[in-house]
Nucleic acid binder design. Structure first.
Lengths: 212, 212
DNA sequence: GCCACTGTTGGACACGCGCACAATAGCCTA
DNA sequence: TAGGCTATTGTGCGCGTGTCCAACAGTGGC
Protein backbone atom coordinates (compact mmCIF):
# COMPACT_ATOMS: atom_id res chain seq x y z
CA UNK A 1 0.00 0.00 0.00
CA UNK A 2 1.46 3.34 -1.06
CA UNK A 3 2.01 6.13 1.47
CA UNK A 4 -0.88 8.12 0.04
CA UNK A 5 -3.22 5.14 0.13
CA UNK A 6 -2.13 4.33 3.65
CA UNK A 7 -2.85 7.86 4.84
CA UNK A 8 -6.30 7.69 3.29
CA UNK A 9 -6.89 4.30 4.86
CA UNK A 10 -5.97 5.64 8.28
CA UNK A 11 -8.30 8.62 7.96
CA UNK A 12 -11.07 6.32 6.78
CA UNK A 13 -10.50 3.96 9.68
CA UNK A 14 -10.39 6.84 12.17
CA UNK A 15 -13.62 8.15 10.70
CA UNK A 16 -15.27 4.77 11.05
CA UNK A 17 -14.37 4.57 14.72
CA UNK A 18 -15.36 8.19 15.37
CA UNK A 19 -18.78 7.59 13.92
CA UNK A 20 -19.21 4.64 16.23
CA UNK A 21 -17.73 6.02 19.45
CA UNK A 22 -17.58 9.80 19.09
CA UNK A 23 -14.60 12.12 18.71
CA UNK A 24 -13.46 12.13 22.33
CA UNK A 25 -13.63 8.34 22.75
CA UNK A 26 -11.63 7.46 19.64
CA UNK A 27 -8.17 6.07 20.50
CA UNK A 28 -5.08 5.19 18.49
CA UNK A 29 -5.57 1.52 19.27
CA UNK A 30 -9.16 1.64 18.06
CA UNK A 31 -8.07 3.02 14.71
CA UNK A 32 -5.29 0.44 14.39
CA UNK A 33 -7.67 -2.38 15.22
CA UNK A 34 -10.18 -1.05 12.71
CA UNK A 35 -7.46 -1.23 10.01
CA UNK A 36 -6.13 -4.54 11.27
CA UNK A 37 -2.65 -3.09 11.72
CA UNK A 38 -0.46 -1.97 14.60
CA UNK A 39 -0.90 1.25 16.54
CA UNK A 40 2.64 2.40 15.82
CA UNK A 41 1.76 2.77 12.17
CA UNK A 42 -0.61 5.65 12.86
CA UNK A 43 2.20 7.74 14.34
CA UNK A 44 4.36 6.99 11.34
CA UNK A 45 1.85 8.96 9.24
CA UNK A 46 0.42 11.50 11.68
CA UNK A 47 2.36 13.64 14.10
CA UNK A 48 -0.35 13.49 16.74
CA UNK A 49 -3.71 11.96 17.46
CA UNK A 50 -5.36 15.38 17.55
CA UNK A 51 -4.33 16.07 13.98
CA UNK A 52 -5.83 12.81 12.85
CA UNK A 53 -9.10 13.42 14.68
CA UNK A 54 -9.49 16.93 13.29
CA UNK A 55 -8.80 15.69 9.78
CA UNK A 56 -11.22 12.79 10.11
CA UNK A 57 -14.00 15.04 11.41
CA UNK A 58 -13.51 17.42 8.52
CA UNK A 59 -13.62 14.48 6.10
CA UNK A 60 -16.88 13.17 7.55
CA UNK A 61 -18.60 16.53 7.67
CA UNK A 62 -17.47 17.46 4.18
CA UNK A 63 -18.66 14.18 2.70
CA UNK A 64 -22.07 14.69 4.28
CA UNK A 65 -22.31 18.18 2.86
CA UNK A 66 -21.11 17.11 -0.58
CA UNK A 67 -23.56 14.24 -0.69
CA UNK A 68 -26.48 16.53 0.05
CA UNK A 69 -25.19 19.23 -2.30
CA UNK A 70 -24.80 16.74 -5.16
CA UNK A 71 -28.20 15.23 -4.55
CA UNK A 72 -29.74 18.70 -4.65
CA UNK A 73 -27.93 19.60 -7.87
CA UNK A 74 -29.76 16.81 -9.66
CA UNK A 75 -32.97 18.81 -9.45
CA UNK A 76 -33.33 22.09 -11.31
CA UNK A 77 -36.32 23.33 -9.36
CA UNK A 78 -35.58 25.19 -6.09
CA UNK A 79 -38.57 23.59 -4.36
CA UNK A 80 -37.41 20.17 -5.55
CA UNK A 81 -33.89 20.91 -4.32
CA UNK A 82 -35.21 21.88 -0.91
CA UNK A 83 -37.29 18.71 -0.78
CA UNK A 84 -34.14 16.71 -1.46
CA UNK A 85 -32.32 18.71 1.21
CA UNK A 86 -34.68 17.52 3.91
CA UNK A 87 -34.91 14.01 2.49
CA UNK A 88 -31.14 13.50 2.49
CA UNK A 89 -30.25 15.48 5.59
CA UNK A 90 -28.15 12.80 7.18
CA UNK A 91 -27.55 14.56 10.47
CA UNK A 92 -31.12 14.19 11.57
CA UNK A 93 -31.52 10.54 10.73
CA UNK A 94 -28.19 8.96 11.46
CA UNK A 95 -27.31 9.24 15.09
CA UNK A 96 -23.62 8.59 14.63
CA UNK A 97 -23.30 11.46 12.19
CA UNK A 98 -25.11 13.88 14.47
CA UNK A 99 -23.21 12.73 17.55
CA UNK A 100 -20.10 13.87 15.72
CA UNK A 101 -21.57 17.35 15.48
CA UNK A 102 -22.54 17.33 19.16
CA UNK A 103 -18.95 16.47 20.01
CA UNK A 104 -17.64 19.16 17.67
CA UNK A 105 -19.89 21.91 19.02
CA UNK A 106 -18.88 21.09 22.59
CA UNK A 107 -15.19 20.81 21.74
CA UNK A 108 -15.20 24.01 19.70
CA UNK A 109 -14.75 26.08 22.85
CA UNK A 110 -11.49 24.39 23.72
CA UNK A 111 -9.99 23.23 20.40
CA UNK A 112 -9.46 26.02 17.88
CA UNK A 113 -8.91 23.59 15.02
CA UNK A 114 -12.25 21.92 15.66
CA UNK A 115 -14.02 25.25 15.98
CA UNK A 116 -12.67 26.51 12.67
CA UNK A 117 -13.80 23.37 10.85
CA UNK A 118 -17.16 23.25 12.58
CA UNK A 119 -17.92 26.88 11.88
CA UNK A 120 -16.81 26.74 8.27
CA UNK A 121 -18.97 23.70 7.54
CA UNK A 122 -22.01 25.03 9.36
CA UNK A 123 -21.80 28.22 7.34
CA UNK A 124 -21.49 26.11 4.19
CA UNK A 125 -24.71 24.30 5.09
CA UNK A 126 -26.42 27.61 5.66
CA UNK A 127 -25.13 29.00 2.37
CA UNK A 128 -26.49 25.95 0.58
CA UNK A 129 -29.91 26.95 1.86
CA UNK A 130 -29.38 30.63 1.07
CA UNK A 131 -28.58 29.84 -2.56
CA UNK A 132 -31.65 27.67 -2.91
CA UNK A 133 -33.90 30.26 -1.28
CA UNK A 134 -32.58 33.02 -3.51
CA UNK A 135 -33.13 30.87 -6.60
CA UNK A 136 -36.66 30.18 -5.45
CA UNK A 137 -37.25 33.84 -4.83
CA UNK A 138 -35.97 34.85 -8.27
CA UNK A 139 -38.18 32.30 -9.95
CA UNK A 140 -41.09 33.67 -7.93
CA UNK A 141 -42.05 30.41 -6.30
CA UNK A 142 -40.76 31.38 -2.88
CA UNK A 143 -41.23 34.56 -0.89
CA UNK A 144 -38.67 35.47 1.74
CA UNK A 145 -37.63 38.93 2.97
CA UNK A 146 -34.40 37.70 4.59
CA UNK A 147 -32.84 34.59 2.98
CA UNK A 148 -29.76 34.71 5.19
CA UNK A 149 -31.73 34.78 8.43
CA UNK A 150 -34.31 32.31 7.16
CA UNK A 151 -31.54 29.84 6.30
CA UNK A 152 -30.13 30.08 9.82
CA UNK A 153 -33.55 29.60 11.35
CA UNK A 154 -34.39 26.58 9.18
CA UNK A 155 -31.04 24.98 9.92
CA UNK A 156 -31.12 25.81 13.62
CA UNK A 157 -34.58 24.38 14.16
CA UNK A 158 -33.48 21.22 12.42
CA UNK A 159 -30.34 20.98 14.56
CA UNK A 160 -32.18 21.87 17.75
CA UNK A 161 -34.81 19.21 17.20
CA UNK A 162 -32.29 16.59 16.08
CA UNK A 163 -30.26 17.40 19.16
CA UNK A 164 -33.13 16.35 21.42
CA UNK A 165 -33.81 13.21 19.42
CA UNK A 166 -30.18 12.07 19.37
CA UNK A 167 -28.99 13.13 22.81
CA UNK A 168 -32.09 12.07 24.71
CA UNK A 169 -33.43 9.31 22.50
CA UNK A 170 -37.06 9.62 23.60
CA UNK A 171 -38.01 13.28 23.93
CA UNK A 172 -38.93 13.84 20.28
CA UNK A 173 -40.02 11.39 17.61
CA UNK A 174 -37.59 11.20 14.68
CA UNK A 175 -40.37 11.71 12.16
CA UNK A 176 -41.43 14.92 13.87
CA UNK A 177 -37.89 16.28 13.55
CA UNK A 178 -38.20 16.24 9.76
CA UNK A 179 -41.90 17.01 9.41
CA UNK A 180 -41.74 19.95 11.82
CA UNK A 181 -38.63 21.31 10.11
CA UNK A 182 -40.32 21.03 6.73
CA UNK A 183 -43.44 22.79 7.98
CA UNK A 184 -41.29 25.55 9.41
CA UNK A 185 -39.44 26.00 6.13
CA UNK A 186 -42.71 26.16 4.22
CA UNK A 187 -43.90 28.94 6.52
CA UNK A 188 -40.60 30.81 6.26
CA UNK A 189 -40.69 30.70 2.45
CA UNK A 190 -44.44 31.17 1.98
CA UNK A 191 -44.78 27.80 0.32
CA UNK A 192 -48.06 25.84 0.31
CA UNK A 193 -48.26 23.26 3.08
CA UNK A 194 -46.87 19.93 1.89
CA UNK A 195 -44.71 21.44 -0.86
CA UNK A 196 -41.52 20.03 0.61
CA UNK A 197 -42.78 16.57 1.50
CA UNK A 198 -40.78 13.89 -0.32
CA UNK A 199 -42.30 10.68 -1.60
CA UNK A 200 -41.02 7.74 0.41
CA UNK A 201 -38.27 5.92 -1.45
CA UNK A 202 -36.78 2.46 -0.94
CA UNK A 203 -33.13 3.42 -1.43
CA UNK A 204 -31.03 4.44 1.54
CA UNK A 205 -30.23 8.10 2.10
CA UNK A 206 -27.05 9.85 1.05
CA UNK A 207 -23.97 9.51 3.20
CA UNK A 208 -24.37 5.78 3.72
CA UNK A 209 -21.10 5.17 1.89
CA UNK A 210 -19.15 6.65 4.74
CA UNK A 211 -19.07 3.35 6.51
CA UNK A 212 -19.38 2.83 10.22
CA UNK B 1 -17.29 21.42 58.11
CA UNK B 2 -20.53 19.44 58.42
CA UNK B 3 -21.31 16.60 56.01
CA UNK B 4 -23.98 18.69 54.32
CA UNK B 5 -21.68 21.66 53.94
CA UNK B 6 -18.92 19.42 52.64
CA UNK B 7 -21.19 17.90 50.01
CA UNK B 8 -22.23 21.35 48.91
CA UNK B 9 -18.61 22.47 48.81
CA UNK B 10 -17.67 19.50 46.62
CA UNK B 11 -20.51 20.19 44.19
CA UNK B 12 -19.57 23.86 44.06
CA UNK B 13 -15.93 23.01 43.41
CA UNK B 14 -16.88 20.49 40.72
CA UNK B 15 -19.08 23.09 39.06
CA UNK B 16 -16.28 25.62 39.13
CA UNK B 17 -13.91 23.21 37.38
CA UNK B 18 -16.59 22.13 34.90
CA UNK B 19 -17.20 25.70 33.83
CA UNK B 20 -13.49 26.14 33.25
CA UNK B 21 -12.54 22.86 31.60
CA UNK B 22 -15.79 21.29 30.47
CA UNK B 23 -17.63 18.26 31.79
CA UNK B 24 -15.52 15.66 30.03
CA UNK B 25 -12.19 17.10 31.17
CA UNK B 26 -13.13 17.45 34.84
CA UNK B 27 -11.31 14.92 37.03
CA UNK B 28 -11.47 13.91 40.66
CA UNK B 29 -8.04 15.39 41.28
CA UNK B 30 -9.09 18.70 39.72
CA UNK B 31 -12.06 18.99 42.08
CA UNK B 32 -9.90 18.06 45.09
CA UNK B 33 -7.29 20.64 44.15
CA UNK B 34 -10.01 23.27 43.69
CA UNK B 35 -11.16 22.60 47.27
CA UNK B 36 -7.63 22.25 48.64
CA UNK B 37 -8.32 18.76 49.96
CA UNK B 38 -7.46 15.19 49.02
CA UNK B 39 -9.05 13.27 46.18
CA UNK B 40 -10.15 10.46 48.44
CA UNK B 41 -12.57 12.79 50.17
CA UNK B 42 -14.65 13.10 47.02
CA UNK B 43 -15.30 9.37 46.98
CA UNK B 44 -16.30 9.47 50.62
CA UNK B 45 -19.27 11.63 49.65
CA UNK B 46 -20.03 10.46 46.13
CA UNK B 47 -20.24 6.91 44.89
CA UNK B 48 -18.79 7.75 41.49
CA UNK B 49 -17.38 10.63 39.51
CA UNK B 50 -20.25 10.39 37.03
CA UNK B 51 -22.74 11.02 39.83
CA UNK B 52 -20.83 14.08 40.97
CA UNK B 53 -20.61 15.52 37.46
CA UNK B 54 -24.30 14.89 36.84
CA UNK B 55 -25.20 16.50 40.18
CA UNK B 56 -23.04 19.55 39.54
CA UNK B 57 -24.54 19.98 36.11
CA UNK B 58 -28.00 19.56 37.56
CA UNK B 59 -27.25 22.22 40.16
CA UNK B 60 -26.28 24.80 37.57
CA UNK B 61 -29.10 23.96 35.17
CA UNK B 62 -31.76 23.76 37.87
CA UNK B 63 -30.86 27.17 39.22
CA UNK B 64 -31.27 28.57 35.73
CA UNK B 65 -34.65 26.92 35.33
CA UNK B 66 -35.88 28.00 38.73
CA UNK B 67 -34.82 31.57 38.12
CA UNK B 68 -36.80 31.71 34.90
CA UNK B 69 -39.77 29.90 36.42
CA UNK B 70 -39.90 32.27 39.38
CA UNK B 71 -39.59 35.30 37.17
CA UNK B 72 -42.46 34.06 35.03
CA UNK B 73 -44.66 33.35 38.05
CA UNK B 74 -44.59 37.04 38.92
CA UNK B 75 -46.79 37.76 35.91
CA UNK B 76 -50.37 36.47 35.75
CA UNK B 77 -50.80 36.98 32.05
CA UNK B 78 -49.64 34.11 29.78
CA UNK B 79 -48.31 36.54 27.17
CA UNK B 80 -46.47 38.44 29.88
CA UNK B 81 -45.02 35.21 31.24
CA UNK B 82 -43.79 34.25 27.80
CA UNK B 83 -42.24 37.68 27.37
CA UNK B 84 -40.37 37.16 30.63
CA UNK B 85 -39.32 33.70 29.47
CA UNK B 86 -37.44 35.11 26.51
CA UNK B 87 -36.13 38.09 28.47
CA UNK B 88 -34.58 35.93 31.20
CA UNK B 89 -33.53 32.93 29.15
CA UNK B 90 -30.02 32.72 30.51
CA UNK B 91 -28.77 30.00 28.21
CA UNK B 92 -28.74 32.27 25.24
CA UNK B 93 -26.95 35.14 26.92
CA UNK B 94 -24.43 33.57 29.21
CA UNK B 95 -21.90 31.55 27.29
CA UNK B 96 -20.65 29.54 30.22
CA UNK B 97 -24.17 28.35 31.01
CA UNK B 98 -24.86 27.31 27.46
CA UNK B 99 -21.43 25.72 27.08
CA UNK B 100 -22.43 23.46 29.96
CA UNK B 101 -25.44 22.35 27.93
CA UNK B 102 -23.28 21.73 24.87
CA UNK B 103 -21.05 19.52 27.01
CA UNK B 104 -24.03 17.74 28.51
CA UNK B 105 -25.65 16.99 25.15
CA UNK B 106 -22.39 15.58 23.81
CA UNK B 107 -21.64 13.60 26.97
CA UNK B 108 -25.17 12.23 27.18
CA UNK B 109 -24.21 9.46 24.77
CA UNK B 110 -21.46 8.22 27.06
CA UNK B 111 -22.62 9.05 30.59
CA UNK B 112 -26.05 7.68 31.54
CA UNK B 113 -26.30 9.89 34.62
CA UNK B 114 -25.67 13.02 32.55
CA UNK B 115 -28.18 11.95 29.94
CA UNK B 116 -30.90 11.38 32.54
CA UNK B 117 -30.33 14.81 34.06
CA UNK B 118 -30.06 16.56 30.72
CA UNK B 119 -33.23 14.98 29.41
CA UNK B 120 -35.21 15.63 32.57
CA UNK B 121 -34.27 19.30 32.63
CA UNK B 122 -34.89 19.83 28.94
CA UNK B 123 -38.33 18.31 29.35
CA UNK B 124 -38.90 20.59 32.33
CA UNK B 125 -38.07 23.63 30.18
CA UNK B 126 -40.46 22.36 27.52
CA UNK B 127 -43.21 21.74 30.08
CA UNK B 128 -42.78 25.28 31.35
CA UNK B 129 -43.65 26.43 27.86
CA UNK B 130 -46.49 23.91 27.49
CA UNK B 131 -48.16 25.17 30.67
CA UNK B 132 -47.89 28.76 29.54
CA UNK B 133 -49.24 27.97 26.08
CA UNK B 134 -52.18 26.04 27.50
CA UNK B 135 -52.99 28.89 29.85
CA UNK B 136 -52.87 31.29 26.95
CA UNK B 137 -55.09 29.04 24.90
CA UNK B 138 -57.68 28.71 27.65
CA UNK B 139 -57.81 32.46 28.11
CA UNK B 140 -58.28 32.78 24.36
CA UNK B 141 -55.27 35.01 23.76
CA UNK B 142 -53.21 32.30 22.06
CA UNK B 143 -54.14 29.83 19.36
CA UNK B 144 -52.16 26.62 19.09
CA UNK B 145 -53.32 23.20 17.82
CA UNK B 146 -50.39 21.33 19.38
CA UNK B 147 -48.92 22.93 22.53
CA UNK B 148 -46.55 20.03 23.15
CA UNK B 149 -45.02 20.17 19.69
CA UNK B 150 -45.02 23.95 19.59
CA UNK B 151 -43.11 24.06 22.87
CA UNK B 152 -40.44 21.72 21.48
CA UNK B 153 -40.14 23.80 18.31
CA UNK B 154 -39.85 27.09 20.19
CA UNK B 155 -37.24 25.66 22.53
CA UNK B 156 -35.30 23.88 19.79
CA UNK B 157 -35.05 26.94 17.58
CA UNK B 158 -33.78 28.89 20.55
CA UNK B 159 -31.20 26.21 21.36
CA UNK B 160 -30.19 25.73 17.74
CA UNK B 161 -29.58 29.44 17.24
CA UNK B 162 -27.81 29.86 20.58
CA UNK B 163 -25.64 26.90 19.69
CA UNK B 164 -24.28 28.71 16.66
CA UNK B 165 -23.75 31.92 18.59
CA UNK B 166 -21.90 30.26 21.47
CA UNK B 167 -19.93 27.56 19.66
CA UNK B 168 -18.88 29.68 16.70
CA UNK B 169 -18.94 33.14 18.23
CA UNK B 170 -19.53 34.99 14.95
CA UNK B 171 -22.06 33.14 12.81
CA UNK B 172 -25.19 34.67 14.34
CA UNK B 173 -25.71 37.91 16.21
CA UNK B 174 -26.82 37.43 19.83
CA UNK B 175 -29.73 39.82 19.37
CA UNK B 176 -31.03 37.83 16.44
CA UNK B 177 -31.07 34.67 18.56
CA UNK B 178 -33.70 36.23 20.81
CA UNK B 179 -35.61 38.31 18.26
CA UNK B 180 -35.89 35.41 15.79
CA UNK B 181 -37.01 33.06 18.53
CA UNK B 182 -39.64 35.54 19.67
CA UNK B 183 -40.93 36.02 16.13
CA UNK B 184 -41.14 32.26 15.71
CA UNK B 185 -43.09 31.88 18.96
CA UNK B 186 -45.51 34.60 17.92
CA UNK B 187 -46.17 32.76 14.65
CA UNK B 188 -46.59 29.42 16.43
CA UNK B 189 -49.11 30.86 18.87
CA UNK B 190 -50.92 33.22 16.47
CA UNK B 191 -49.89 36.24 18.47
CA UNK B 192 -49.62 39.72 16.92
CA UNK B 193 -46.08 40.57 15.87
CA UNK B 194 -44.23 42.27 18.70
CA UNK B 195 -46.44 40.82 21.45
CA UNK B 196 -43.50 39.14 23.14
CA UNK B 197 -40.98 41.93 22.89
CA UNK B 198 -39.80 43.04 26.33
CA UNK B 199 -38.90 46.54 27.25
CA UNK B 200 -35.13 46.86 27.73
CA UNK B 201 -34.19 46.79 31.41
CA UNK B 202 -31.03 47.88 33.16
CA UNK B 203 -30.79 45.01 35.66
CA UNK B 204 -28.76 41.92 34.82
CA UNK B 205 -30.56 38.72 33.85
CA UNK B 206 -31.43 35.87 36.19
CA UNK B 207 -28.87 33.26 37.10
CA UNK B 208 -25.97 35.69 37.46
CA UNK B 209 -25.45 34.57 41.05
CA UNK B 210 -24.16 31.19 39.99
CA UNK B 211 -20.63 32.48 39.55
CA UNK B 212 -18.02 30.98 37.29
C1' DG C 1 21.93 -12.44 -4.90
C1' DC C 2 23.05 -8.80 -1.98
C1' DC C 3 22.02 -4.35 -0.03
C1' DA C 4 19.67 -0.40 1.35
C1' DC C 5 15.47 1.54 2.22
C1' DT C 6 11.08 2.01 4.09
C1' DG C 7 6.61 0.36 5.59
C1' DT C 8 5.34 -2.12 9.59
C1' DT C 9 5.36 -4.42 13.98
C1' DG C 10 4.65 -5.06 18.94
C1' DG C 11 5.92 -3.93 23.16
C1' DA C 12 7.79 -0.53 26.61
C1' DC C 13 7.36 3.87 28.74
C1' DA C 14 5.46 7.65 31.39
C1' DC C 15 1.47 9.54 32.57
C1' DG C 16 -3.29 10.26 34.23
C1' DC C 17 -7.53 8.27 35.30
C1' DG C 18 -11.34 6.42 38.83
C1' DC C 19 -11.43 4.06 42.75
C1' DA C 20 -10.36 1.51 47.25
C1' DC C 21 -8.40 1.04 51.67
C1' DA C 22 -5.71 1.33 55.82
C1' DA C 23 -3.97 4.93 58.70
C1' DT C 24 -4.61 9.36 60.85
C1' DA C 25 -6.64 13.48 62.98
C1' DG C 26 -9.98 15.90 65.30
C1' DC C 27 -14.15 16.51 67.63
C1' DC C 28 -18.13 15.03 70.60
C1' DT C 29 -19.77 12.42 74.35
C1' DA C 30 -19.40 10.44 78.80
C1' DT D 1 -9.45 12.81 80.66
C1' DA D 2 -10.63 8.60 78.04
C1' DG D 3 -13.01 6.49 74.34
C1' DG D 4 -15.25 6.10 70.14
C1' DC D 5 -16.80 7.83 65.97
C1' DT D 6 -16.23 9.99 61.60
C1' DA D 7 -14.18 13.18 58.49
C1' DT D 8 -9.97 13.23 56.06
C1' DT D 9 -5.57 11.80 54.31
C1' DG D 10 -2.14 9.50 51.43
C1' DT D 11 -0.85 5.85 48.96
C1' DG D 12 -1.31 2.46 45.67
C1' DC D 13 -3.68 -0.63 42.39
C1' DG D 14 -5.37 -1.72 37.77
C1' DC D 15 -6.32 0.08 33.64
C1' DG D 16 -6.15 2.86 29.47
C1' DT D 17 -4.07 6.54 27.11
C1' DG D 18 -0.59 8.84 23.48
C1' DT D 19 3.91 8.39 22.15
C1' DC D 20 8.26 6.36 21.18
C1' DC D 21 11.61 2.98 19.49
C1' DA D 22 14.33 -1.04 18.36
C1' DA D 23 13.61 -4.90 15.55
C1' DC D 24 11.52 -7.11 11.45
C1' DA D 25 9.99 -7.87 6.54
C1' DG D 26 9.33 -7.15 1.95
C1' DT D 27 10.56 -4.91 -2.19
C1' DG D 28 13.18 -2.37 -5.76
C1' DG D 29 17.97 -0.94 -7.41
C1' DC D 30 22.63 -2.39 -8.30
Amino acid sequence: MSPHERREAIVTAALSVMLRKGIAATTVRDVAEQMGTSSGLIHHYFTSMDDLLALAFERAASQDLDATRNAMAADGDPVGRLTIFFATYARAEQDWAFQLWLDAWAEAARRPAVRATSERLNVAWQQLLVETIQAGRESGVMSCPDPDGAAWRILSLLDGLALQAVAHRVSIDRRDVISWSIANAETELSLPAGSLLALPVATSSAGASMGG
